[in-house]
Design a protein around this nucleic acid. Structure first.
Lengths: 109, 109
DNA sequence: CACACTACTCTGCTAAACGCAGTAGTGTGC
DNA sequence: GCACACTACTGCGTTTAGCAGAGTAGTGTG
């Protein structure tokens, strides 16, 4: 099965969670997500998500010069972002529970 | 948060699981999924998923006359479907674990 | 015979992840 | 001193899949 479809709607939460830990820029968020186990995540997806979240008003943004490459566009959570994260994480957990009900009923052997 | 996006890729597994329990027809699968907690699932999504899974060769299909309405198109799992279900369920569980890592690292306070 | 419930189909819309290409900045090796 | 690798970001077009909404029937009830 392709995990691409599973990511839908979840990448938002994942990115928010990673940034809450510590402010991050795109390239770095990609690495942190991959390190956490989302191995085959695409760069374009993360950059796209960051832009979407920022334009939705959930993130702050500031640019920092780098000593090893181009400048970095850092993102951080604001209050709206933190609230959204809490909310989405709760929705996710509830969803997982529901799916567990659906899946464990299977062949009640 | 909208659960629509969370369903992506997961509805397949959910439908397969429900059908493995017992053969079912569209209208009935919808009710069983809703009963399990996927309240706001749309009929069109389930019928679409059933057709997709059938055409992918995971389901068998047979028509039964009903005593209370039009005929019913029942679906059942074949071996390919059962294998796919096992596989997808495993992928899902792994994905949930990964997401748990991502989410619980959050604010390691 | 109108209406409700069952049961299914079809068309078109939309969100979001991704592939791919392109643009730069920096540092390393030949 | 130039090719190449790595860092860092942007933009466009494609694809997948869930959903809204409308339509078509069959059955049974007031």
């Amino acid at each position: 099965m392709d995990t691409t479809q599973l990511l839908k709607g979840v990448l938002d939460v994942a990115v928010l969670a990673v940034i809450e830990q510590e402010d991050g820029y795109g390239y770095d968020v990609v690495r942190r997500l991959r390190a956490a186990g989302l191995d085959d995540i695409a760069e374009a997806s993360v950059y796209g998500t960051l832009r979407r979240l920022f334009h939705s008003g959930l993130l702050t943004s500031y640019v920092v010069a780098s000593d090893a490459g181009p400048h970095r566009k850092y993102y951080g959570l604001n209050d709206v972002g933190r609230a959204q994260l809490a909310d989405s994480a709760a929705t996710w957990k509830q969803f997982v529970k529901t799916m567990n009900v659906v899946l464990t009923k299977e062949s009640a052997a």
